[in-house]
Design a protein around this nucleic acid. Sequence first.
DNA 1: GTGTGAATTGTAATATTATAACCTTTTATT
DNA 2: AATAAAAGGTTATAATATTACAATTCACAC
Lengths: 171, 171
Amino acid sequence: MSASAYHPHDHQGCISTALQQAAILCAEQGVRLTPIRKRVLELVWQSHKPIGAYDLLPALAADGFNSAPPTVYRALDFLLDLGLVHRLASLNAFIGCSQPGHDHQSCFLICKVCDKASEMDVEPWFTALTDAAKTQGFSVESQITEVVGTCPQCSKDSSKDSSQKSAGQNS
Amino acid sequence: MSASAYHPHDHQGCISTALQQAAILCAEQGVRLTPIRKRVLELVWQSHKPIGAYDLLPALAADGFNSAPPTVYRALDFLLDLGLVHRLASLNAFIGCSQPGHDHQSCFLICKVCDKASEMDVEPWFTALTDAAKTQGFSVESQITEVVGTCPQCSKDSSKDSSQKSAGQNS
DNA sequence: GTGTGAATTGTAATATTATAACCTTTTATT
DNA sequence: AATAAAAGGTTATAATATTACAATTCACAC
């Protein structure tokens, strides 16, 4: 959860937690977490990096699900609406939300070396932006902040050798 | 310049200022502001809203320039590299930079009513963001923040009537 | 001022991401 | 079972962006 996505961790645990939370959230909202939606959420979480919509299609096909763009976009839209996944506009890719259900403004730290991304809570940042915008008469509704840099794992790796690109620290 | 983009203003002045600044910047950097590049910059500035790459093509064609996607993307890439324009990832659109040459972290306030966008300096809070990331071991390189909300002009308009979509306040 | 290499532009094709439109199936409810 | 709403299937296409390579123009050395 707060176990900074870049480090090795029990990712299977992350996935099942996410699926459980999703089931609860859908029940609360009275909406259906259908097999396709559930599978898409699982696939998004399974990826160690933000994943593109089209990258989900082969896996869906392999599972015997229908596999055409509208299918996956519908599922993603559903998950986005519920806040179960986020879309990273700068990457045209999707990532699981680590605090679904909490209506929060988030910020993504995207590592330019390993391409992984992690969500950071930025309530103070958001408050500052909102206030600053307000002094200009602009009323804020939502925001996306996407930060590019180097994650701790890759910083560490590069201080040792210098050839890594998403090597090692998986799952 | 800091005349909050949403309000009526001498936009022709904005454009010529931008072109002059661009010429200076290119001279400083020893790069060429060719006719195509200059025209693309002008067109981007001429637009009252962030403008898509493909929306630039007809105007280029009308000017007798070559008009194919690579042409405009090359020009845009050139301008992006120099910091003369920004790309708004959430809109797949481009907008002129109001402080070119100043290596700055900015934030865009995008009005969901009139679709115009304005750049806000976030240097003051950027430090806080960077520090927060640093406590997680993430070293920040760059950042994009795109805020959606309602601009002052549209807020004012909607308090009077309720049917406006980019009407009126042009140029 | 000519030759040379680098930068820029032209051109055609194609990749990638996302949506529209319409029809069929499934689900929940009566 | 009848019905309406939701979800999914299917085909086509829109919108955004890039690759690859050829032709041209430019800057600079000679």
